[in-house]
Structures are given as C-alpha cells and as structure tokens.
C-alpha cells in the first residue's frame, strides 16, 4: 500500500493528467459532477454522490454513432466513433456503488453482440475507486452486498484527514501506479484498517441497511407485475426522467438522426422508460399509463434484469433517486412495499 499527503493531491492529478485524460468530481456551477481535470478546477473528492453518475464517461448522455453523406443517390456511412488512439483516461474517485454499477452496465453493453462504442471507452479507462467514510441516510449499497469501505477497481484509494492511501488491484492499476510512483510513499495499512472499521460501524446504522429483497425473484415475476400496489406507488410520479438520468445503472437509450449542413448525424442519447413516448409506435403504445412506465422501471431493476443476469440486481443502492426525485418517490419505497415480509 502507498500513500500521498492530502496537500499534494494536486501534484498527483497533474501527474496523471500528463498521460491520461483525468475525470474527477469537480464543482462547477454549484454542483459536483465528473469533469476533465485541469489546473485551477475545484476538485471535490469528498462529495459522496455526484449528480450524474460516472456512467457518463462510458455511456455518454449523447454520443455520435455515425454520419451519413448523400451524393446524388449514393449514400455513404462514415464511422465517427471516439478515437481509441486518443489519450486513455482515468476515472478518479469512483465510489463502491458506482463501481458496481459499471459492472451492471458491462453485462448489458459487453454481452454478445458487444457494443463497441461502450467497449472502446471502457477498455481505455483505468478506474480509481475511493472508499466511503461518511455515508448518508439515503445510502443502501450494503443491501446489495456492496462493501463501501473497500471498493474494487483498478486502484482502490482511501482518504482521511491527512493522506490518500493507494492500492493497485489490477495490471492497469499497476501501470497507473508506476506512472505516479515518484509521488507515493509506502505505508498506511493501519490507517486504512481503522477507517474501514469505523465506516463499517456507521454502515450498520444506515436506515435501509436491511432491506428485504427476497420476493424479487424471477419466479415471482407475474405476481409482482400484477400487484395492486403499483397504482398507489406511482400515483405521484410526474413522468420526468430525473431518477433515470441520475441512476448509475439505467442504460436505456434512443437513437436519433440530426440533419446538419453536411449530411446526417446519427447519435444515441439517454432515454427514460418514464417518458410517455418511450414505447410509442405509429400504431400504438404498449405502456400507455404512468403506472405501467413506473412499474417497468422498477421491475427492470429488481426482477427482469436479475432474471437475465443470474440474480444480479441492477440497483446498487447509491440513493441518488432517494435524494433527487422531485416528489420523493424512489426504489426504497418500492422495495419496502413489495420486497418481502421483513420490510417493517
């Protein structure tokens, strides 16, 4: 294990930025989101939850896929993907829940047939995770078996009042460590162990620590789908996309064309199953009510996705929706209502 003094973090960022594009939580316009680091930027590693999750780096809110050019009757397709030969990048300060969320996304985008747009960005990234030390009441990653005190990733780091502690886990992580080695000194194991213990004690007190998910099983799919509680749970839903867009695992997208002076750009962008036009076709819509759309989102996270992926839930308990839903609806309320007998 290595460490670096907190005051020297800027040197670390600057060193990483020499060879990598460095994405790190930065405060801009009053809110903390992942942005590319640069001298003078206001880094905020302590921020527990960036508004947008790190998924934005691999699966950008909007991404050009290809261009079409027309000459007479002839059509030409130009691949405009992100150039792999550009600088590889480092995602710095990813929390345990958000790291788990990337695994959830991997299972969608890297499943056959591989989404090469996602893949190229994913492969070019070294992920440096940061252990949590000050969780808040909306956190419930432990309900999904995630250990916020020791996240995985290419490199795991811990931050306390004095130092950042650094431990490489993978080859990519070793390579990054080698690149910044001159700034690191050895040691810090005891401090990290102490922090882990104290954070774990806090984690036990999280109000949602023991959510009962036992009823969310593929065999209960139809029973859960038909549950009358969906009506009242979704009643206040505005049908906005806040929960979807702040969610680190939501991966639905739309593909759209945009006409430019030169031709047509085909891009994909985030879409939300909460939107009324999500499933709208020329001759009908399979989900006409907000209740159906609300149900779709939570059934997907808690039943459909696990059924397709060996029981892995596509919720990681980051609590962003708990904080951000305009009308205070969220997945916790759904789990408590439908999850099983042990929820109150």
């Amino acid at each position: 294990m290595f460490k670096i003094a907190k005051e020297r973090l800027n040197e670390l960022y600057s060193k990483i930025a020499e060879t990598f594009g460095l994405f790190i939580p930065i405060k801009k316009g009053g809110e903390v989101n992942y942005h590319v680091w640069g001298e003078g930027k206001e880094v905020s590693l302590e921020t527990l939850k960036t508004v947008k999750s790190p998924k934005n780096a691999f699966f950008p809110q909007s991404e050009n896929l290809m261009k079409f050019k027309t000459e007479g009757k002839n059509l030409e397709i130009i691949d405009v993907r992100w150039d792999k030969t550009e600088k590889p990048f480092v995602m710095f300060g990813v929390k345990a829940c958000d790291y788990k969320a990337i695994e959830v996304l991997d299972k969608v985008f890297l499943a056959d047939p591989v989404d090469t747009y996602y893949q190229s960005r994913r492969e070019a990234t070294t992920i440096v995770t940061l252990a949590c030390s000050r969780p808040e009441e909306s956190c419930f990653c432990n309900a999904f078996g995630i250990d916020a005190t020791a996240p995985q990733g290419d490199v795991t780091t811990w931050l306390d009042g004095e130092n950042l502690y650094w431990q490489a886990n993978t080859q990519k992580g070793e390579a990054l460590t080698a690149a910044v080695k001159e700034l690191l000194t050895e040691g810090g194991e005891e401090k990290v162990e102490a922090q882990k213990a104290s954070t774990k004690a806090i984690m036990e007190k999280l109000p949602f620590a023991s959510l009962d998910l036992s009823r969310f099983k593929p065999e209960n799919l139809n029973e859960l789908f038909e549950d009358p509680a969906w009506e009242s749970m979704s009643e206040a839903c505005l049908g906005c996309g806040t929960c979807t867009f702040v969610c680190p695992t939501c991966q639905c997208f739309d593909i759209r064309d945009f006409k430019t002076n030169e031709g047509v750009i085909r891009y994909r962008c985030w879409d939300s199953c909460m939107y009324s036009d999500f499933t709208l076709m020329a001759h009908g819509n399979s989900r006409t009510t907000q209740m159906q759309r609300f149900r779709q989102r939570f059934m997907h996270k808690l039943v459909y996705y696990p059924s397709q992926n060996d029981g892995l839930y596509s919720c990681v308990g980051c609590g962003r929706c708990v904080n951000k839903c305009p009308q205070k609806l969220n997945i916790v309320k759904v789990i408590k209502t439908l999850g099983g007998k042990n929820n109150d």
Binding site: V108, M281, Y304
Partner: peptide
C-alpha cells in the same frame, strides 16, 4: 411487435417482462 431502437437487447424498450 414493439418499439425497437437497437435490435440487440440493449436500448431497453421492447421488453415484455424479462
């Protein structure tokens, strides 16, 4: 027949159950 965008089970809109 449902609305589709990607055709490969990633865009998330043409599901019926799982």
């Amino acid at each position: 027949e449902l609305r589709m965008k990607c055709g490969v089970g990633k865009c998330g809109r043409c599901n019926v159950g799982d």
